[in-house]
Amino acid sequence: MKKHFLLATLAAGLLAFGAQGALAQNIAIVNGKAVPKARVEALAQQVAKSGRPVTPEMEGQLREEVIAREVFMQEAEKRGLSASDDYKVQMELARQTILIRELFADFQKKNPVTDADLKGEYDKFVAANGGKEYKARHILVENEAEAKTIIASLKKGGKFEDIAKKQSKDPGSGAKGGDLDWANPSSYVPEFSDALGKLAKGQLTDTPVKSQFGFHVIRVDDIRTAQLPAFEEVKPQIAQQMQQQKLAAFQEELRKKAKIE
């Protein structure tokens, strides 16, 4: 009798140890099915990837989320939803999305944008946008005769801002008295840019400037050395842009190499 009691006690202890071991690996048992801790860890990694810190308070929420998903999954399985055509189509699309995302992530990991690449791109930006910036105004009209009349009126003391508001065909600057704000000459069409570079501060064009948009009357209000952001300020934006360019080139290369019939 005593031997039987000892065996029963030992068996109970082993069962309890087994249950504790299962709980150590699982966060719960839902309707007899174990829910592994690995699911919580995977979900936490996804949250961390999105940029949100996984706090101790959130760990409890993640656990409840994983358990709730298991409950809902079991019910969906019970109803046979995993056998539906719609489910299979959505699963295939999800599989494709995840695999393609992994492909792109793998490419970017193996083909990083280096600091030398970033500095080189910044130097190109400086070369294209450095030098002088002009604070100019213009009045855009459809024909040369009208432009010449405006120039004559301005030379007689006419107010540039008022004429621009009344006669300029440029809806953006016209309402602001022709004001184009500060800009590098390279941001304008060549004819406009060339004329701008020949004017001194406070000077008005003597003759109309013809471009694809019509005829311009231009005045330079001020000139300064270009105000460009420091490399470190724009480094993140340059990195993002270059990564996107590299990825786009990789995608295009794959499409070109693919045999599509």
Rank of each mutant, 00 (worst) to 15 (best):
R63I: 05
P208Y: 08
Q251F: 12
Q243I: 04
P56W: 08
G174S: 10
N31I: 06
I163L: 11
L196T: 01
R255I: 12
A48Y: 03
P208V: 12
Y134W: 09
G202L: 02
V234K: 07
K246L: 05
A34Q: 01
K135I: 00
A34W: 04
K49H: 03
A19D: 00
I163P: 00
P236H: 00
E233Q: 13
A12I: 13
Q240T: 11
K259P: 09
Q90V: 06
L140T: 08
S173A: 15
R63T: 06
L154M: 04
K169E: 08
V66W: 03
K3A: 10
R137I: 01
Q243F: 00
Q20Y: 15
K132I: 05
T207Y: 08
I223L: 04
L228D: 05
K165D: 14
G18V: 12
Q245P: 00
L199N: 07
Q45T: 05
E261A: 14
D194S: 13
K109M: 10
V141E: 06
R219H: 12
N143I: 11
D115F: 01
P171C: 05
K2N: 09
K159S: 07
A175Y: 00
D162V: 09
G130H: 02
Q25F: 09
D115G: 07
Q241D: 15
S84P: 06
G172S: 10
P208R: 06
R63H: 07
D86M: 07
A76N: 09
I67N: 00
E232N: 12
E146C: 04
V217C: 02
L196S: 00
Q227T: 15
R69D: 04
Q25D: 10
L254S: 08
Q46C: 06
T205C: 03
A249W: 08
A226W: 00
E233I: 10
L247M: 11
G120A: 00
P190G: 13
P36V: 02
D85R: 01
K210G: 02
D85C: 07
S82G: 14
F72P: 03
V47H: 01
A152Y: 03
W182N: 08
G197V: 08
